[in-house]
Simulated assay, not measured.
Amino acid sequence: MSQWEGISEFVAAAELESFTRAAQQLSTSVAQVSRRIGRLETHLGVKLFVRTTRKVALTEAGQLYYHHCKQLVSGLETANSALTELQSAVKGKIRLTAPVYFGENELAPLLTDFAAQHSDLELDIELTNRQLDIVEGGFDLAIRLGNLSDSNLVAKKLGTRQMHVCASPEYIAQYGQPHSLAELASHHCLVGSQPYWRFSEKGLHRQIRVDGRFRCNSGHFLAMAARKGVGIAQLPDVYVHQDLQQGSLVELLLPFREKEEGIWALYPEKSFLPHKTKMLLEHLVQGLKGR
């Protein structure tokens, strides 16, 4: 038998001096309480109770055993209460990784608001453009943008982002603007970490290889170069939405704009998520919805 079997029944019966009241407290039957205590006595090789028609009383061995078992049951109850509290409160630590620019400009206000709302929560945030191994790095969450590669991680969609092909009014005045994908070959394209841009043409996904005299793996740099008239860039809205609203950049090739991409939270597959993590995910969904 399990070493724990019958312990809860024994402690309840010892404190209430009754198998009946112990059964009521534990929401079980008197027969079950009697059977489990009987098996416990057989396992231990001692009598724990003296049974009478009106009540039960502890033997000397029972009193000694109760003294130690009470501490075990109390410790288990404390552990269960602590776990319940952890699952119902936003407290503890969340370790998160995200891309640098997106983290600084989109996540920073949301994460700092969340931290201010929950004073018992500890946030450990690592911003990097490298895709770190979540499990090996001990992360609870990783924020990823765009198309996801296959993995055994769980992906929750937090929101969407839109890619924009854009140039400054000065560039357009000097070089004109492309009206077809083929015309990109005759323009100065600002090339990022990938040598191709993504489009949608007649409902089909297309990747167009681009080239130019300015290359950089930083979207921030590419957006700056586009504003200064160096060339045409394809960038997500986090880099250019204000410029497009203010007119310092003009969107090009709108008929070929690809559908919105996902903003994702990835986390290791688990049977359940801690309450603190669920609350943070919901906070990010609501915050990114209003961006």
Rank of each mutant, 00 (worst) to 15 (best):
G229P: 03
A14L: 01
Y175S: 15
P236I: 04
G159C: 04
S2V: 08
T59Q: 05
K202Y: 12
G176W: 15
R54P: 02
G137A: 05
P268E: 01
R213W: 07
P109S: 09
G45T: 01
L288A: 07
A167K: 03
H68R: 13
A79K: 12
L44H: 00
G92P: 08
A115S: 06
S2T: 10
G229F: 01
L252N: 11
Q25C: 13
S119G: 08
L107Y: 03
E126A: 13
I143K: 04
Y171W: 03
E41D: 00
F139E: 01
K228N: 15
V240S: 06
A225F: 07
L153S: 04
L204Y: 14
E170N: 07
T42E: 11
L266Q: 06
Q207L: 11
Q71T: 15
S74A: 13
A116P: 06
C189P: 08
S168H: 00
S2E: 11
T78P: 05
R215D: 02
S74Y: 15
V11R: 00
L58K: 08
C69I: 00
L184P: 02
L26P: 02
C216K: 09
E15T: 06
Q71A: 13
C216Y: 10
E136V: 07
H118K: 05
L249E: 00
R209K: 14
L222V: 05
R130W: 03
V73I: 09
L141P: 09
L184A: 04
H118I: 01
L181W: 07
K270M: 00
Y65S: 06
N217E: 10
A57G: 14
K259E: 12
F214M: 03
F256E: 10
